[in-house]
Nucleic acid binder design. Structure first.
Length: 571
RNA sequence: CGGGGUGUGGCGCAGCCUGGCAGCGCGCCUGCUUUGGGAGCAGGAAGUCGGAGGUUCAAAUCCUCUCACCCCGACCA
């Protein structure tokens, strides 16, 4: 392709509304343009990358025996009512009405539609197993779309759904998809890690996320420094600490009140009392379905609402508002503590049991208690794993220390079981003529997010550096001093030869100065640049630049083709 | 949803406090020169100052409302 013919509107300055590097570079390089918050147009270069990623996914999914379909983005509310998710999905679901005032939504995911399809068409175990996938635009009205393609309201996703006759087969399918995902992300050229995850809104029994390691990631991943355990922190199980002996209440000092004027937050109280956050106990009130519970965690820990939700077996869980706090604790918010909470259930994280004596809120303005001891000064109904893992916590497998990394979720596989098939009465007849619900799995990949993740992991101060498997072009041929007939002819010859070899090549034919071409080439991040210039050409040489290493080598002009063929093949 | 910030030619910004001809850099168009890392000179086109209302002789500037976008948070006491 000729550069001058392609629509590549590059920008010299950084756009003011792009913060993270992938967003900035995609805008600058003319890959995408914003239409509204979280909604983007893909320009020719961006679309080429998107297609590259899609193609890799297709090839691997097909190899794994999955079949591509295309389900509608526009979906009737009835299907969602069947699973209860019309109500459950909340504001994130983009809802629309047709002219007859009937409710529809723009699909954020397709469990309902696919299950409806299968229950209508599949009757017998002989038609199983079945694994269908699609690559399609999804719609989610995110609370806060951000970071360009990272979290959009409209984005491209590959979603697959598997149907098996029993749990064992479904597990094998799940395992197969897990391995397929490993291959996909490897081919795409990402440094990633598969981690245990919570199933969230999709539901199901087990799930794994595929995380691209990057500082700008929105998730925290806990992984063991010794064994291969890795999990999203919202999922990572924490063990009850062993070997702790409860302080002898008789010998311990009695609890007493101290004045802490205006000190509400953990930091303020710590600073005022000259204590570490580990000596404090936070008391949080939650509205869990229709009851109120109190949760205690150490000052430096955070309550994990997902774990709490599982522990309480409730669907709705929100932190209590200030009014509720006042009513229940009879004290102002900021000074809540467990002592006076006689009538409500009190849960505490395992780590609380290991605290000898703690500072707690006194349910009175400007007052905290010190030397408070669980079991003596206040009651704890249940100890459980209720907090997020932090660096240094023990690995649940081998007890070594966990480390925390940031990650971008690019894939997620779920073992759904019969959640959707039962809710929607999707069943088949087994060998014995018995009616059984399908055992399902579902498998998602954020296709457009992969683009962003790839840039987050592959860039320098000059621009993007695409892995060759998803680069919009493999090679860019750049003639300089192109007024000279020989230079232009030589460059064109190389371009034609490379293209003939099936190497996707961009020909920089613009009438720009060399500096402009070089800078734009580096910005666009095409893996190899072939620079054709007068001086080298006189000696039968051209310059080859590796965008990643910045290394420049002069090679004989008639070896360029073979050289690049080799490079493109082995990368 | 709460907090903070920003809207001025295509892009990046100044001007606003203290009201008085709408500016700068880059880009764009024409011409000449230049040509291996974002050229020089000359000429030129291009802006309802996010929108609505108000105050005023006069509003980008002051007031009110509103919309959009970005960042932080998601009630972590």
């Amino acid at each position: 392709m000729y550069f001058s013919k392609l629509f590549i509107p590059t920008l010299r300055d950084n756009p003011s509304d792009a913060e993270i590097v992938s967003h900035r570079l995609m805008l600058r390089g003319g890959y995408i343009r914003k239409v509204a918050a979280g909604i983007y147009s893909f320009l020719p270069l961006g679309l080429r990358v998107l297609y590259k990623v899609e193609q890799i996914i297709r090839e691997e999914m097909n190899t794994a025996g999955a079949q591509e379909v295309r389900l509608p983005a526009l979906q009737p509310s009835e299907l969602w009512e069947e699973t209860g998710r019309w109500a459950q999905y909340g504001k994130e679901l983009m809802r629309v009405k047709d002219r007859h005032n009937r409710d529809f939504c723009l699909g954020p995911t397709h469990e309902e539609v696919i299950t409806d399809l299968i229950r209508n068409e599949v009757r017998s175990y002989k038609q199983l197993p079945l694994n269908l996938y699609q690559i399609q635009t999804k719609f989610r009205d995110e609370i806060r779309p951000r970071f360009g393609l990272m979290r959009g309201r409209e984005f491209v996703m590959k979603d697959a759904y598997s149907f098996d006759a029993d749990i064992e087969e479904a597990k094998a399918t799940y395992q197969g998809m897990y391995e397929t995902y490993q291959r996909i992300f490897k081919r795409v050229g990402l440094d990633f890690r598969a981690v245990e995850a919570d199933a969230g809104m999709i539901g199901g029994s087990s799930s794994h996320e595929f995380m691209v390691l990057a500082e700008t990631g929105e998730d925290d991943i806990a992984s063991c420094s010794l064994c291969d355990y890795a999990a999203n922190v919202e999922r990572a199980e924490l063990l009850q600490l062993e070997g702790f002996k409860k302080t002898d209440h008789e010998e311990a000092e009695a609890m007493c009140a101290v004045t802490t004027p205006g000190k509400k937050s953990v930091e303020e109280v710590c600073e005022f009392l000259k204590l570490e956050a580990t000596a404090l106990l936070k008391t949080l009130l939650f509205l869990a379905d229709d009851r109120i519970v109190a949760v205690l965690v150490r000052g430096d820990h955070e309550v994990n609402e997902i774990k709490l939700r599982h522990q309480l077996a409730v669907t709705e869980l929100v932190l209590a508002d200030k009014e509720t706090v006042k009513r229940v604790t009879k004290g102002p918010s900021g000074y809540s503590g467990p002592v006076a909470l006689k009538d409500i259930e009190i849960l505490a994280d395992y780590s609380v049991a290991a605290m000898p004596a703690a500072v707690i809120g006194a349910n009175q303005k400007d007052t905290h208690y010190i030397q408070a001891i669980a079991g003596r000064d206040f009651n704890v109904d249940t100890y459980a794993d209720l907090r997020n893992a932090v660096a240094g916590d023990s690995c649940p497998r081998c007890r070594e220390a966990l480390v925390i990394d940031r990650g971008i979720e690019v894939g997620h596989v779920f073992m759904l079981g019969t959640k959707y098939s039962e809710a929607m009465q999707a069943s088949f007849l087994d060998q014995n003529g018995k009616d059984k619900p399908f055992v399902m799995g579902c498998y998602g990949i954020g296709v457009s997010r992969i683009m962003a993740a790839a840039i987050e992991q592959n860039h320098d101060e000059r621009g993007m550096i695409w892995p060759i498997s998803i680069a919009p072009f493999a090679v860019e041929v750049i003639p300089v001093q192109e007024k000279k007939e020989a230079v232009l002819t030589a460059a064109k010859t190389i371009y034609t030869a490379l293209t003939k070899q099936g190497i996707e090549t961009l020909f920089e034919d613009r009438k720009e100065r060399a500096g402009v071409k070089f800078n734009d080439a580096d910005l666009l991040g095409i893996p190899f640049q072939v620079v054709v210039g007068q001086k080298n050409l006189e000696q039968g040489l051209v310059e080859l630049k590796d965008r990643r290493t910045g290394e420049k080598t002069c090679i004989p002009i008639d070896e360029v083709e073979a050289f690049l063929l080799e490079k493109c093949r082995c990368q």
